[in-house]
Design a protein around this nucleic acid. Structure first.
Lengths: 126, 126
DNA sequence: TGTTTATTGCAAATGAGTTGCAATAATTTA
DNA sequence: TAAATTATTGCAACTCATTTGCAATAAACA
């Protein structure tokens, strides 16, 4: 578990996650930071932050890579994973704090689970 | 619900799904059929077959599009979705016939769920 | 048969994510 | 503190799955 240097770029990225529980796609993050940070750097910082347990990543229905704050779960203990919800109208993604138990499956050793619920968020259904 | 013409290309594709319960990635299907069917055509036939309820698609951990036979579930009734399992060693994907109940989530209308379990398959763990 | 409609192939485009490399910045060591 | 080592960043070019436009062909229908 290396130490992450709090460079200017790292700080700028972390700041975007500070005031929200929303997940953000890398595409979106790259766009928001493109004036200050290079695309490649964004990808690499996110990778480091995930390795260090600050963020976690998963794939959206849109097949983009999404990141959100890690909030407690350890990499070894992801089987009772929290689901993510993606709104099919606006595309936004949130971590849900409902834990879903994954049953033991015969013939398969399950290490982790990615649960993506798809539907409509509050804003888009009203 | 349109009728799918059983063209030569459609038949060739369906045949690949006939004797297996495995899911197949589009990349793999394209490769297997490249002598006879154009890549674009493969993509389009798969789309049609999904619209017609013959196949269903989902995303793998590898961010590829995967297809498998549909087996009973209707598009309107996917909430108690069956999970898919992807082996992180060999990359193979299977539909599991274990139904997982998705809890009702406040503030979100859940239409469907994508549950991907990641781990080791029988072949790779022995 | 002639006309409309669906299917296919091809080439080129799109766009997310990655790689190699040189430049810079931070840290360590002498 | 300066030199040496190590980590971070930017840039350009690349990879590769998926999509698009368009013309050619095949099937269905009148």
């Amino acid at each position: 578990m290396g130490v992450i240097r709090k460079t200017k770029a790292v700080k700028a990225l972390l700041q975007l996650f500070e005031n929200t529980d929303n997940a953000m796609s890398v595409v979106d993050l790259v766009k928001r930071l493109e004036k200050d940070i290079n695309k490649t750097t964004v990808y690499r910082i996110l990778e480091r932050l995930e390795q260090d347990g600050v963020l976690h990543s998963f794939n959206g229905k849109d097949r983009l890579k999404w990141y959100a704050k890690y909030e407690g779960c350890t990499p070894e203990h992801r089987i009772d994973a929290h689901p993510h919800f993606q709104c099919k109208d606006c595309g936004s993604v949130r971590c849900l704090h409902t834990n879903i138990s994954i049953p033991v499956v015969e013939n398969y050793i399950v290490h982790s689970a990615e649960i993506l619920l798809i539907g409509q968020c509050k804003d888009c259904s009203s």
